[in-house]
Design a protein around this nucleic acid. Sequence first.
DNA 1: CTCACCGTCCCCACTTTTCCCCACTTTGTG
DNA 2: CACAAAGTGGGGAAAAGTGGGGACGGTGAG
Lengths: 146, 146
Amino acid sequence: MFLGTYRHAVDSKGRVAVPARFREQLPTGTVISKGAEGCLQLYPPQEWAREQGLRLGSTTPAEERRLARMMFGAARECEFDAQGRIVLSADQRQYAGIANVAWVVGVNNLIEIWNDDNWRHIGEATPEEYTRIQDQVAERRRAPST
Amino acid sequence: MFLGTYRHAVDSKGRVAVPARFREQLPTGTVISKGAEGCLQLYPPQEWAREQGLRLGSTTPAEERRLARMMFGAARECEFDAQGRIVLSADQRQYAGIANVAWVVGVNNLIEIWNDDNWRHIGEATPEEYTRIQDQVAERRRAPST
DNA sequence: CTCACCGTCCCCACTTTTCCCCACTTTGTG
DNA sequence: CACAAAGTGGGGAAAAGTGGGGACGGTGAG
């Protein structure tokens, strides 16, 4: 279980420290790829395995083909240095719009990496906003047909 | 079962004492996160487990992605020091508007942490208000569709 | 084929934060 | 009134995060 938001520096070599709390839960075989809303996502092996359902074949619909290409094409296995940092490739930094700072966020089963603006926009919430969204999801769950 | 309201100090390091009565009911694995109306909430493990259904994957709808990010991003596993205190992160203190004092409130299955103003506003009630709200809830239960 | 350049990774040193420990104050209880 | 339990405050060691130098290997140009 990954919890919490951490603001970390990204140095000139593209390195970001993964919080120690997360690192100790990440076995080798962890994968980093692109995610929705312009973030990067770290998948522990067991979570990555769930995404294996997404495959190319003669009967795969166009949308899934596209998703599979983006997701797997952008993916890489994570390599930690002795300080617990991973390197974000130029490509990944560009996709996420990351320059000197990154927000590393634990989202239950995954870890996400965001730039300043996007995280402020998506992740931070005023009490009013938070209350509204919580109620919205609760409502939807109660009446899933809508 | 958590009952009662306690007014505790928050020191310069962001630490708050959890009342001893509550602490003895809290096993390891207790989680603190943001709650509705600008409070913080402490979930004992069995309560937190209910929230685990919310996961990220390539098929998670947008609203749930948003809620998951806010909720888990703001959460932390509680770590008690030898004096029975937990640390509220700067982020959590800002969300709840907590500076030097916090109200720690037992609300049956959860524990909530409030700042002065909000708690006065939400928690204290005149007899008239109390009656009105009780009737309102009773009404809704009778006709859940509204 | 050789050399220069670039990117990657490994290592070391410094800074900042966290958390562990101790001591004091206050509250509640016998 | 005295003792015990609960809450408060702060100092210091250890861990986590940050930044940069330099070796190694691969690539492309001359």
